[in-house]
């Protein structure tokens, strides 16, 4: 019998109070999971449902709701199914349970999230070491309240005389001069 995401979700919901399935394609769906149930859900998916591959772990900054959303995308290779688990955590203090014991690769993602979003994952290996940036002291740059342009203006010397054109207006002027 072909496994599909609906069946997997039904089996999962029988065990754990996870959210509704938001299907994007036949082989890709997302699911809201409360932070406290993440580990149980991932273990169930990994050990019972064949989702052995952690594809990615990434974050979205929902600054208006004062929340971070973490997306854990896992893949069942033999059935060719992808399932994304969405976890909302408070923005301040941003902290989430580490899953590096489930997938060692998660430690790398967690280091990145720590550096770029300032999300803490207590116990994750080498979490506080520099990852991509070196000696970064300002707000983590992927947070939406970090003003990239202002930071670049304050930090890096500029060459005077740089101008910015509106691309549409500029090209119209170039290609059809005189026309309005």
């Amino acid at each position: 019998m072909q496994t599909n995401l609906l069946d997997i979700h039904a089996r999962l919901q029988a065990l754990l109070p996870v959210g509704e399935l938001q299907t994007q394609r036949a082989d890709l769906a997302f699911l809201d999971v409360p932070p406290s149930l993440l580990r149980a859900t991932l273990l169930q998916l990994r050990d019972r449902e064949g989702f052995t591959h952690l594809v990615l772990l990434t974050a979205v900054d929902w600054i208006e709701q004062e929340q971070f959303q973490l997306t854990y995308l896992v893949c069942n290779r033999s059935a060719r199914l992808d399932l994304g688990l969405r976890v909302r955590i408070p923005r301040e203090p941003a902290s989430m349970e580490s899953i590096h014991e489930l997938w060692p690769t998660a430690a790398t993602y967690q280091r990145e999230l720590r550096e770029m979003f300032g999300i803490d994952f207590p116990g994750s290996p080498r979490l506080d070491e520099d990852f991509i940036l070196e000696g970064w002291t300002a707000t983590p740059p992927y947070r939406r309240d970090f003003d990239t342009l202002k930071y670049a203006e304050e930090t890096y010397a500029e060459r005077p005389g740089r101008v910015t054109y509106d691309p549409a207006a500029h090209m119209q002027q170039q290609l059809y001069p005189g026309e309005r």
């Binding site: 740059p141 990239t148 342009l149 930071y151 670049a152 500029e158 060459r159």
Partner: peptide, 19 residues
């Protein structure tokens, strides 16, 4: 390298090499 190019607003790249 001259004036930042399209990375003029990047948090992590310099904009003027001759500095």
């Amino acid at each position: 390298t001259i004036n930042g190019g399209m990375y003029f607003d990047s948090y992590n790249t310099i904009k003027r090499l001759d500095q």
